[in-house]
Design a protein around this nucleic acid. Structure first.
Length: 109
DNA sequence: GATATGACATGTT
DNA sequence: CAACATGCCATAT
């Protein structure tokens, strides 16, 4: 696969995939990458979301790391925002791996 | 090209 | 459970 990123094909499919996460469910960077058809591109999923505008329809807050935690620096604005929204959608403050597995979203678009 | 850097993941200590 | 080590791969310097 060489650099698909030039055409932003990867970016589009990733955002589409994330948009498909049902409310109340969660997913991880790795799972999104995989579902999008790019295994091992977990870091890049993060890179894409990082450059995402603050106000967007993309449910970026439903994407967390494999530990079940927000991948932000504690105390940062986005970190709180994510936790806030997740709590809002009915998730416990601290997500264990078991919990994460239950609410996981493994579907292919 | 070489090195450093990431909203990551997984396996060992 | 936490800290560390490796693997991963595009981007930036």
């Amino acid at each position: 696969m060489q650099s698909h990123f030039t055409e932003s094909e990867f970016r589009d499919i990733v955002l589409t995939t994330i948009s498909a996460i049902p409310e109340g469910k969660l997913s991880t960077y790795g799972a999104i990458a995989k579902a999008a058809g790019y295994p091992r591109y977990a870091r890049h999923v993060g890179q894409i979301l990082k450059n995402l505008p603050a106000h967007t329809g993309i449910p970026w807050h439903r994407v967390i790391n494999s530990k079940g935690t927000s991948s932000f620096a504690p105390g940062s604005e986005r970190h709180r925002a994510q936790i806030q929204r997740l709590t809002n959608e009915g998730h416990p403050a601290s997500l264990g791996k078991a919990h994460l597995k239950k609410l996981f979203w493994p579907e292919i678009v």
